[in-house]
Design a protein around this nucleic acid. Structure first.
Length: 488
RNA sequence: GGCCCCAUCGUCUAACGGUUAGGACAGCAGGUUCUCAUCCUGCAAAUCCGGGUUCGAUUCCCGGUGGGGUCACCA
């Protein structure tokens, strides 16, 4: 932590349908920083492009953040299942702030920092084409910058649609990026960026500066793709006479081929991983430690540890390929540490509702599952005995007769043992019995496994007995013994 | 192409200028074992290249190379 100041950070996604895990990472970093300093984390919706916005997009963002257990303190939030706004800096949805942007655009116009541009799209396409042919940088030629007041007046009265462009001054801008250090950009490289579109909506550049200032954001955390447009934002802050926030541009998340993580090469929505049965805790841990490791000596960190240990300066500069195999591993790690009861609660979302006496099934299956969905499937498979081929009951070098005898003996033992409170004790005890009886472990345990689960791959027979209970165990033994009658 | 960013095992990463370059995932080989999974042990695997600065460079500087981003009335 390099400051005692309370940070106000924000996550400002567009409602385009999916909450990209790269977005989740910037949201997480912003959240960690705010929480660490006792500040506020806000959620603002950047819906200035009507074409890209999607129905339910806002709900999806809010809901997915909620599922990840990242609750904004301010801005667009979910309350009792409804999307609403809290805070005194609203509205927090840019499409509802149009008059605010218009007002500031007028100010820039009045100060000569911006100008109206009446050029048609056709003309823009034309000059771009010419510039490309001449191998020049495609840039607006400032045709409208020098228009006289009379000309402007004439266009306005004729209702010619126009945009408002930033008049980029000469000079240089230096970005003091928390992660990357100082970066200098020459204004000559820059275009007179459109600030207000013909439809009266602001562009991202206009809206982000106005909002971050008005909402008193202290540190802007966003993806690296914004680095090269930051000088425009710096210029705007200067023109408005505002102090710019700190900037931190985090590296991109990459596909296996090192291109920008994209839909084409797999799922990129956080909600998709939640839907697949990854735990929110594991997903948060995994995404947060992509390009960042607080201590370097371990992989698993609780959310609170991440909040306490987060440091923007420790965020890597290079892009990170997302290794989903590691997510599998991490999810397993988290599932191992969770109780059967807790996991059962989480599996409600996957259609499995268990009674407390069934939590044992979860305990004995969790080591085998990668996701909650897997786990639910595995548990479901144990809940009822499937039809199985009786020949499976026979251990390798044994025969049906022997299998039947073994099951009878096992049934006798289980019946005599009674209720099992501690699995380890039962296992120890039964193993001892097997030994004193002079039985081959595989010879008796294999038929037990099949009889109790109907499957070749399952938890151990001891675990199965423990979870099924004496009554169901004896019933399944009985079924198996009967199925062996008449086979050899 | 211009501008900008970046560069440690296959992947994610750790290493005040001095370490046998550490850990994790994946891989491989063993062990435990009634199956699978877990678990345990071990193996293999990296400082992009070339110059400098320095007694000493993964670390600092320069140049290459490679990768990425960005150049819209999209964010």
């Amino acid at each position: 932590m390099d400051t005692c100041m309370k940070e106000r950070t924000r996550f400002a996604p567009s409602p385009t349908g999916l909450l990209h895990i790269g977005g989740v990472r910037t949201a997480l970093y912003a959240y960690f920083l705010a929480k660490q300093t006792g500040g506020d984390f806000l959620l603002r919706i950047e819906d200035t492009d009507q074409a890209r916005s999607v129905d339910q997009g806002v709900e999806n963002i809010v809901h997915t953040l909620q599922r990840l257990n990242i609750q904004p303190d301010e801005g667009v939030v979910s309350k009792n299942g409804h999307v609403t706004e809290v805070g005194e800096y609203g509205p927090y949805q840019q499409s509802k702030r149009l008059t605010v942007y218009a007002q500031y655009a007028q100010q820039l116009l009045a100060n000569g920092h911006a100008y109206r541009c009446f050029c048609s799209r056709e003309r823009m396409d034309q000059i771009r084409k010419e510039q490309q042919q001449n191998k020049e940088q495609p840039k607006y030629d400032r045709h409208c910058l020098h228009a006289s007041d009379a000309e402007i007046e004439a266009q306005l009265t004729a209702n010619v649609p126009y945009v408002i462009r930033l008049h980029v001054p000469e000079g240089k801008s230096i970005i003091h990026d928390v992660i990357r250090g100082d970066i200098t950009f020459d204004h000559r490289e820059m275009d007179d960026q459109v600030l207000m579109k013909t439809d009266g909506f602001p562009t991202y550049h206009m809206a982000v500066v106005v909002d971050d200032h008005l909402m008193e954001i202290t540190t802007v955390i966003r993806g690296e793709e914004w680095l090269s447009s930051t000088p425009k934002h710096l210029i705007l802050y200067k023109m408005f006479g505002w102090q710019a926030p700190r900037f931190a541009h985090v590296p991109l998340l990459l596909n296996a081929d090192r291109s920008k993580l994209s839909k084409r090469q797999g799922d990129v929505g956080a909600e998709q991983y939640l839907d697949k049965g990854y735990l929110a805790e594991a997903l948060v841990n995994f995404i947060a430690t992509l390009g960042f490791n607080p201590t370097g000596d371990r992989e698993v960190y609780s959310k609170q540890e991440l909040i306490d240990l987060f440091d923007l300066k420790k965020v890597n500069k290079g892009g990170a390929v997302v290794n989903f195999e590691k997510l599998d591993w991490m999810n397993k790690q988290y599932m191992q540490t969770m109780s059967g009861e807790e996991l059962s609660r989480r599996m409600h979302a996957f259609g499995l509702v268990l009674t407390p006496d069934q939590y044992r099934f979860v305990d004995i299956e969790k080591a085998r599952a990668t996701t909650l969905k897997d786990l639910a499937d595995h548990v479901r498979a144990l809940l009822s005995l499937p039809d199985y081929d009786p020949t499976l009951l026979v251990w390798k070098k044994s025969d049906a007769h022997d299998a039947r005898e073994m099951l009878k003996a096992a049934a006798g033992y289980v019946k005599a043992y009674g209720d099992i409170n501690i699995l380890a004790e039962f296992e120890l005890s039964m193993k001892e019995w097997i030994k004193t009886e002079g039985l081959q472990t595989g010879n008796i345990l294999w038929p037990m496994r099949i009889a109790l689960s109907g499957r070749e791959v399952s938890p151990s027979p001891f675990e199965l007995v423990y979870a099924l209970g004496t009554e169901e165990t004896l019933h399944r033994f009985e079924v198996a013994i009967r199925s062996l009658e008449g086979t050899r």
